[in-house]
Structure formats: structure tokens, C-alpha cells
């Protein structure tokens, strides 16, 4: 059930959405396509689904060339950001739609829909219309509908993008658990790095129509291939000519080695404290600490400190490049 994408390109008028993208998505995994808006990740997902046709290149699903197949022959499940609920059909009929198209028996459809509604916790809502459901419920219905046809691959386009923060977080955990139960090859698009890091087995970072890096969440976070990936996946600050994560910096007040500087600002954001240090060369550096760390150090605005990179930092700190490193 793997997906092989080779040399896919797509333009909209004079806007290049995808520029010679090659990618291999492994079977049974939960893969995130991560990147900024307009970077081409949704277009890539829609090309896999057949909702958009690539200008160049080839798409293979489960070993079959699908480049020219219309969407209804690809057996993919697609979940849309705004649910795409069939407004005139009840929740049951929505979920049953793909099975009715496939002319399954009434009995089989009933059984399968019951199973799926139970799976997405909508058992008692079967007879409602989609407009009578909350956003989160509608998205779960859309998921059940996509899963009903036992798709070869499940594709989700910013599935939680239209939901508020709390529901989003619940659905995210729920998707992770669901995938552990169902094991269907799943690809989802998101612009939220936290979502990708938390849910995915593998992350594909896409920017400006190109793949920047592919890897496991930890790999990407700890060993970003370039400055773009490093900056996109988490906070970054600069010490001397090195890029480093603010939480990988240590502050000391007892001399020793490290870059000398003075604290110019302390901001508390919930559980973390953001300390701004101006080095002797006048470079502003951001360091994040916990409240306890700050108290233990006994520092505040005006304190002279030394800055150094924590000893067990895995990040092969990148030199900042004037322009973003080219993709491969």
C-alpha cells in the first residue's frame, strides 16, 4: 500500500505549486506533509487522490500506475478540511455512500456503518443531519465515510484546520490511536509543526513546491537538513554564527567558559521563561528556561551571565545561510 511519487510537477497559471517532487510514502505508516500555506502540500495530496492532475511525473499507488486514473478508480479515502459533508443525507447515509456506490448488500452496509459509527463514537447520531453535528463530530463522520470503503490509502487535507484548539487536540490524539488500530497507510497535510511532530510516524517538509526533508519527527527536529526545516519545526535563536534552539542554551553566573552577555529582558509565557541576553558583541540571544531553573540561578534583568550550548545537544548546529539551502 505504498505510494511512489516521481518527478511530479504542477502549475496554476504562472504559479508553480509543485516543482519536480519525488517521494516515497511507506505502507502502513502515518505520514505528515508539513509546510507553510501555499507551499504545495495540499496540491500534492490532491494529486495522490486524483482530484488534481499532475502536469508532469508519475504517481504509483500500491504498485499500480495511478497517474491517469480518475479519483473514483483509485480507492483512496479523502478527508477534507471543511468536511465536505453531504448536507442532504443523514450521518448514516453519508457513511454508507461509498458502499452504496459499490452496490454492497443492504445487510453488509448496515453492519459496516454500525461498526464505523461506533469506531468514531457517533453511534447515537446516525439519524441526524450533518448540520446538527459539531465541527469535531462532522470531521469524525467524514473520517468514517472515508474509511467505509476500506481505502488503500487514507488522505487527510488539514483535517483539523477548521476546528478550535481544544477539539483539535482531542482529535489529534484520537487519530493517532485510530491509526494504531486500523493501520491503513495514511497521509495528512498540516501547517502546524506541533501536530506533525505529535501524530506522525514520518514527516515530509514541503516548501515552495519542493521537498525540503523527509524523516522521523525526532530526526527532523534534532537533525534538520537546512535552516528552513530547523526554523519551521521549532524556535530558533542565533549564538555567534550558529543557529540553536533556545532550550538547548545554558546560562551560568559562575564564570567559566561561554559567551559573556547581560540579561536585557525576561518574559514569562506560562510554564516557560524567555530570557533575552545581549552578548558583549551586541548580539541578542533568546534562551528559554523553566521557572525553577530561573529561580535556582537567581538572575534577573541586568545580571551578567555566560551562554553556552548544552553538552548533550543533538543538533548539529547549522551555520546560518544567507539564503535557504536548496532542496534535494
Amino acid at each position: 500500500m505504498s505510494i511512489e511519487i516521481s518527478h511530479v510537477g504542477k502549475r496554476f497559471a504562472d504559479f508553480v505549486a509543485l516543482d519536480d517532487v519525488s517521494l516515497s510514502i511507506k505502507a502502513g505508516r502515518l505520514t505528515a506533509l508539513l509546510g507553510p500555506s501555499g507551499g504545495g502540500k495540499s496540491t500534492l495530496l490532491r494529486i495522490i487522490a486524483g482530484l488534481e492532475r499532475a502536469d508532469t511525473g508519475r504517481v504509483e499507488i500500491d504498485g499500480v500506475d495511478a497517474t491517469r486514473l480518475p479519483p473514483q478508480q483509485r480507492n483512496v479515502g479523502f478527508v477534507f478540511q471543511h468536511y465536505a459533508a453531504f448536507k442532504h443525507l443523514s450521518v448514516r447515509r453519508n457513511v454508507a455512500f461509498g458502499l452504496e456506490i459499490r452496490k454492497r448488500s443492504k445487510e453488509e452496509i448496515r453492519r459496516r456503518v454500525d461498526e464505523l459509527l461506533a469506531l468514531v463514537h457517533l453511534g447515537q447520531f446516525g439519524d441526524r443531519l450533518p448540520t446538527q453535528l459539531s465541527g469535531g463530530q462532522r470531521q469524525r463522520m467524514a473520517l468514517a465515510r472515508a474509511l467505509a470503503v476500506e481505502p488503500t490509502v487514507l488522505l487527510l487535507d488539514e483535517p483539523f484546520g477548521a476546528l478550535d484548539a481544544k477539539v483539535r487536540k482531542e482529535l489529534r490524539d484520537w487519530l493517532r490511536r485510530l491509526h494504531d488500530e486500523v493501520h491503513v497507510t495514511t497521509v495528512f497535510v498540516t501547517h502546524d509543526q506541533e501536530e506533525a511532530l505529535e501524530v506522525a510516524d514520518e514527516i515530509v517538509v514541503i516548501n515552495d513546491g519542493r521537498v525540503e526533508q523527509v524523516g522521523a519527527p525526532d530526526d527532523l527536529y534534532d537533525r534538520p537538513a537546512n535552516e528552513f526545516v530547523m526554523r519551521f519545526l521549532g524556535p530558533v535563536t542565533q549564538l555567534g554564527d550558529q543557529l540553536v534552539r533556545p532550550h538547548d542554551l545554558q546560562l551560568t553566573t559562575d564564570g567559566g567558559d561561554g559567551v559573556p552577555g547581560r540579561i536585557t529582558r525576561v518574559t514569562r509565557i506560562g510554564f516557560e521563561i524567555r530570557v533575552e541576553v545581549t552578548t558583549a558583541d551586541g548580539q541578542p540571544v533568546t534562551v528559554t528556561l523553566t521557572r525553577n531553573e530561573l529561580l535556582a540561578l537567581g538572575i534577573g534583568i541586568g545580571t551578567d551571565v555566560r551562554l553556552r550550548i548544552a553538552p548533550n545537544t543533538p543538533t548539529p548546529t547549522l551555520p546560518p545561510t544567507p539564503t535557504l539551502a536548496p532542496a534535494h
Binding site: F12, F15, S37, G38, S42, D192, Q193, E194, F228, F232
Partner: peptide, 17 residues
């Protein structure tokens, strides 16, 4: 969202035409 991204800001919303 709790995490911060220091990427130079992109215009919000989908830029796809």
C-alpha cells in the same frame, strides 16, 4: 497553538490561487 515558529512570516491563509 502553543509552539512558536520564528520563520519569517508568510502571508496568512492559503496562497494557492
Amino acid at each position: 497553538m502553543t509552539s512558536t515558529t520564528l520563520v519569517p512570516d508568510r502571508p496568512a491563509g492559503d496562497r494557492r490561487p
